[in-house]
């Protein structure tokens, strides 16, 4: 199975011409309208106002590694089942779909993405009762999807699939724990040509990431080539146990059908 996101890649290539820095606002609006319909069909997509905020640099220093954080208002966060990140100008615009589990603390999630051209980013939060809240942010960056990856290719190969987790301190049994997860994976976009062989380097990217705590889901991510090389995620979870200790587990399936799993102990909260 190629996967739904890859389907959108193919679809997007058939949509109105490639994005470019010279695109007019009307063209950008038309692009989003097309994408919105492709992803959400006829569902109503409401303006999120201050309920959903995208935090990203206005101008990226490195278009292949653009940090993006999505924040949800305290009032909205508990209602949210899933979150879409769309990069309108990318060859594969639907960059990520986070599906939150019962243990997710959805107030903020962050990752790093590739951006191929000056573009709007859209974050769309979906509530349990099916409402969609969208917000947009414009970013000046170009060339991120076809930019060369791999500064140290031997290391990349040796480290493939390895993960690193950093946890914030666990102060109270019921407080959310912040986590930063790094995954070593080239996330090849399939858009780089090998000049010597005249072949494209095949796409090879993380398709799904499942994060769970003690067997209960924190989130599942369906992702794509727009996630930067060595994917990085900042998220929070509520252990919902009596204070631990517990085990956080991450499970990855990539487009080459490789499967990577790693687990980390989560220390117990201090006795109150």
């Amino acid at each position: 199975m190629i996967g739904r996101l890859f389907f959108f890649l193919l679809l997007s290539l058939t949509l109105a011409g490639p994005a470019s820095a010279e695109q007019s606002e009307a063209e950008r609006a038309a692009r989003w309208s097309d994408l919105r319909h492709a992803i959400f069909g006829d569902r109503v997509v409401e303006d999120a106002g201050d309920l959903v905020v995208i935090d990203a640099p206005a101008r990226a220093e490195d278009a292949a590694i653009v940090p993006v954080a999505i924040r949800l208002a305290e009032t909205l966060a508990p209602e949210i089942l899933s979150l879409y990140l769309v990069i309108d100008g990318n060859p594969s615009p639907l960059a990520a779909h986070f599906l939150f589990g019962p243990l997710a603390d959805t107030k903020e999630i962050a990752t790093r993405v590739r951006i191929d051209d000056y573009t709007y980013l859209h974050a769309v939060a979906e509530t349990a009762d099916g409402r969609l809240y969208a917000t947009a942010r414009f970013i000046k960056a170009a060339g991120g999807c076809s930019a060369p990856a791999g500064k140290d290719q031997a290391l990349a190969l040796e480290r493939l699939g390895k993960m690193k987790l950093t946890l914030s301190a666990r102060l109270k049994p019921d407080a959310p724990i912040g986590a930063k997860l790094l995954v070593s994976h080239p996330n090849y976009s399939g858009l780089q040509m090998d000049q010597l062989s005249r072949n494209y380097i095949p796409a090879d990217f993380m398709q799904t990431l499942d994060v769970s705590y003690n067997g209960r889901s924190v989130f599942r991510l369906e992702s794509d080539i727009a996630i930067s090389e060595d994917p990085s995620f900042n998220f929070s979870f509520r252990p919902a146990d009596s204070g631990g200790p517990g085990v956080l587990r991450a499970e990855i399936l990539d487009s080459s059908q490789r499967h990577f799993t790693q687990s980390w102990p989560v220390p117990a909260a201090p006795q109150m």
Partner: peptide
């Protein structure tokens, strides 16, 4: 390691 690097980057460059 130059051939590998050229394969990755030559087209882009």
């Amino acid at each position: 390691k130059l051939p590998g690097a050229l394969a990755q980057r030559g087209d882009y460059y």
